[in-house]
Design a protein around this nucleic acid. Structure first.
Lengths: 204, 204, 204, 204
DNA sequence: AATGAATGAGTGTTCATTCAT
DNA sequence: CATGAATGAACACTCATTCAT
């Protein structure tokens, strides 16, 4: 690729990103169904037709926004799982680190998570199914951690239920946290969540 | 009111209820935005115009469906709160009974809760705000219980966070439960939740 | 069907017909691609949405207009073919009667034929193919007549070519005739066409 | 004009021609209304903006394609007319030569004629009018031949009608011929047409 | 009360044309 | 000259709501 082509490629990517950021903000405010393509392009400072040079439909913009969120959510639990496989050390600090990771990604992807958790299910049946699938996959990964935790200390809870508690908590609490302008402090939130979930999961 | 008028009043209420049941089922399947008034009236076996004799808009039907859910959700925690004010006994069985109560109302109002928790936020900004307000109010009530529980045993968690964990768990887990065709068994679910949340909340 | 339903059925048919007549006139004037749905409904004295209660798309209106024209065109030649199978008499008067028949249907279906012959091929590829298929089928039927005529008098022309001449003549001349406000007189046109085509086809 | 300018002029003409050839092929396949400027430039191996350096609009390309077709169609009949003015000889071979000429130009300008005869009327009202004007002018020229032919042998047909038959036949049959992949053989087609039209026109 | 035809504002998407690079 | 991103007017179709019967 020529230097010129590379440059144009970069500009194109930046433009696409501008649309995504604009769309993200409008979707979050008005919701997908009540967002007009013109709202997005106005915010991006460009024209309606221009957007269609980068995305082939309104849904494609949404898909791009949501894509990656599944992987992102799962990634932190995967890391913890890997850590547990390699260490026999008490897990408290590892779990704390896990939640610190979530605090970070929820903070960075604030609008995306709000849209995903609060809105996505209400757009249409397809998106509702997709959303639930993402949550279910996430829970499967969480369950692996739960099972791993039981190896440190025997427990008699149904791991599926425990995993669902963790999932609901992570999604529910962090979504509330970002809607609540990151109150309480991240450290307090992380400590409390760790305390709560580890105790709830582990103690006999 | 004459006997005749009373009778007519009753028929009217039944008709209105028929519309609500029909709407509930279609909303749950297709989502509010993708539900056509005709879908509802077809399911109710009547005509489009007829519906407008009972409701003044599509939103009003939705409002009626959702109305009461806030009160319903809060009621069980209120009962528990009242119980705690009157008793100093260990609360495990009381909490268990609380979750049994939730299992029952989520079972009975299955579609309503699915719509409320999975879809309502995606309809439009007003409903998103309403939904979050209901959840916040619910959490306030939950917090009272958390605070009460600390009276039995000292704890150093932020009660707002703990309350949010309880809320997220109740909504997240029970919604999953009904989507999962009421698996696992109610008793197991109730026991596990009680175990998890009480331990998570109370143990030092 | 109740008398009331029958009446409503009739009104519906009349309304549909009103749309067809309106569309026919606008299509003929502006062409399919430059006709706006609003042009049609304005001419019909009703609203855009109303039209969609009777037709599911702009193309469906066009299809209804064109449907039947194939059968109509072929019918006259079919009649002549039947006549020839039953009679050995000189065919001049029969051919004259054939063209009188065409004069009548082109007169009655003036706009339809103009749209079919002058415009249909230009709307899109699908309609061009359809149009040509109709003309080809028509020509097949004409060829049967040509072959029949040769039984009265031997000829050495390629019957496919002769049939194509007849087809082109019927469509081209009658279309010109209606565009030319039915000048010259029908009788003269019929006599001349008969004379021309019979001589052209038959004489050794 | 300098030699350099002349050279540049030539290159420009070639480029323009490339666009015309590309447009011709796409118009013929998809029709004017369903052809995108990009389709044409892609086929020409260049960019959208580039085309607008050579033509000021999509319609202008079409106009250039069609321009000349009127003159081309008429030319052969003009030649025949000139021939008749100078010769009293029997015209059969002259008419044959006329149709051989048409076979040649329809063969060479295949796409142009298909677009002209099958599609042009359906693009918009202006083009429909233009198309019909071209056909009418053509028919006027044909009529002169018809009149001339009557000088060799008296006839009592309306010359306008006869001319329209010739016109319809030439356009209809040759268009069919090219759509039919030049079947039947040119010689057979020419002979048959000559035979048909001369007999139809002349014989008492 | 019940019906369903009629209304018409509203919206995603297309595409000929322009113009900065 | 060449490029292709940007523009924005245009349009088919939808659907909540109304209202004459």
């Amino acid at each position: 690729m020529s230097s010129r082509a590379k440059r144009s490629e970069k500009i194109k990517k930046e433009k696409k990103n501008l649309f995504i950021i604009s769309a993200l903000s409008v979707f979050e405010e008005k919701g997908f169904n009540n967002t007009r393509i013109k709202d997005i392009t106005k915010k991006a400072g460009t024209s309606v037709g221009n957007l269609y040079g980068y995305f082939k439909s309104k849904e494609e913009i949404f898909d791009v926004i949501i894509s990656g969120i599944a992987e992102l959510m799962i990634s932190k639990f995967r890391e913890l799982f890997t850590y547990f496989k390699q260490n026999r050390a008490p897990p408290i600090s590892a779990v704390k680190s896990l939640f610190r990771g979530y605090a970070k990604i929820f903070r960075t992807k604030k609008e995306t998570f709000l849209i995903f958790f609060e809105q996505m299910g209400g757009i249409n049946a397809t998106y509702r199914t997709k959303r639930n699938k993402i949550i279910d996959d996430f829970t499967d990964e969480v369950e692996k951690i739960i099972v791993k935790l039981s190896e440190f200390e025997a427990r008699d809870q149904n791991s599926k239920i425990s995993a669902r508690v963790w999932t609901s908590t992570v999604l529910g609490v962090f979504t509330w946290w970002i809607r609540n302008d990151f109150e309480p402090e991240e450290e307090e939130l992380v400590n409390n969540l760790t305390d709560f979930l580890v105790k709830g999961t582990m103690t006999k």
